[in-house]
């Protein structure tokens, strides 16, 4: 397959990279792992005149503990870096499990967590759980940096609030109020398939009472979607099978799926109902975040 010509830049510092992106304008594309950018270019879905590679920027793939037990994930960390990270295995094993469900081993060795977010694909595997855990992201631009909740990042399929000169540099996951979390994906194959529907759930349990819940749906709306009505339904309540079923139905009503080659609107809605119940049950019984 033919890969068109482009100018290649590999700036040595982050500020140089942002300046370059500002100067080159919308025809320049940030390049981290490249598994998405290159396959889109080969399929003539993307035509960047210039590629700004992040390969010389050190430190952006680190996964570490920050202040107040915050977990900081560098945006250049690959999916397999997440899976193998002792910090995440200890603090957020559910995030390791979510990363393991993306594509296949070869792609997980190259594809970065930053790329999985910035592409803003509604079926992406990491956003639902990261949003459920209240992750924040840091965007660094030519004139400064900003930190915002990942929940506010997406605006539509392949669309987000990122500016032309901005680079996503890290994720910040603060100490959790939750006792358990999980990400469940339904796809047509176990590997190398996009989600038909997915659900991330995080719950704070006190005995059998749910103090707080977060439910985030993937692949069933233009962006990852919080099922807020279902969350409210659970808050402060004793968990029963009936309540979980009601929460599943509520989440199903809140979803806004489309019909496409992977599944119809009706099928996706029903998947959301079933997966929400399953994800909540798993998060309740999980005993780790």
């Amino acid at each position: 397959m033919y890969l068109p010509d482009f100018e290649y830049y590999a700036p040595a510092t982050l500020s140089e990279a942002c300046d370059l992106l500002e100067k080159l304008g919308p025809e320049a594309k940030v390049f981290a792992g490249g598994t998405d950018v290159l396959s889109k270019m080969k399929q003539e879905l993307l035509f960047p005149k210039a590629i700004v590679s992040l390969k010389n920027l050190g430190g952006l793939s680190e996964i570490r503990l920050g202040n107040n037990n915050d977990v900081i994930i560098g945006a250049k960390a690959t999916h397999n870096n997440l899976i193998d990270s002792p910090v995440l295995q200890e603090k957020y094993p559910s995030l390791c499990n979510a990363a393991r469900q993306m594509a296949n081993n070869q792609v997980r060795n190259i594809g970065t967590v930053g790329g999985n977010i910035v592409n803003a694909v509604p079926s992406a595997d990491l956003p639902p759980l990261l949003i459920a855990l209240g992750a924040k992201i840091k965007l660094v631009g030519a004139t400064g940096e900003r930190v915002l909740p990942l929940e506010d990042f997406f605006t539509g399929p392949n669309k987000s609030v990122i500016e032309q000169d901005e680079i996503l540099t890290e994720f910040i996951i603060e100490e959790q109020p939750f006792t358990g979390s999980t990400y469940i994906k339904f796809a047509l194959r176990r590997s190398g398939a996009l989600a038909v529907a997915s659900v991330a759930a995080a719950v704070a349990m006190e005995g059998n009472v749910c103090r707080k819940a977060r439910i985030v749906l993937g692949a069933v709306a233009p962006t990852p979607l919080r099922a807020k009505k279902a969350e409210e339904m659970l808050t402060g309540k004793e968990i029963t099978d009936e309540l979980l079923e009601e929460a599943g139905s509520a989440a199903s009503k809140e979803s806004k799926p489309i019909s496409d080659i992977r599944g119809s609107e009706e099928y996706r809605r029903d998947l959301v109902r079933v997966l929400t119940g399953r994800a909540l049950r798993k998060a309740i019984n999980e005993g780790h975040v």
Binding site: L38, K55, N105, N109, I110
Partner: peptide
Amino acid sequence: KPVNSCLILALE
């Protein structure tokens, strides 16, 4: 590490 060499620029 196993990778797809069709999705890696020689420069990278």
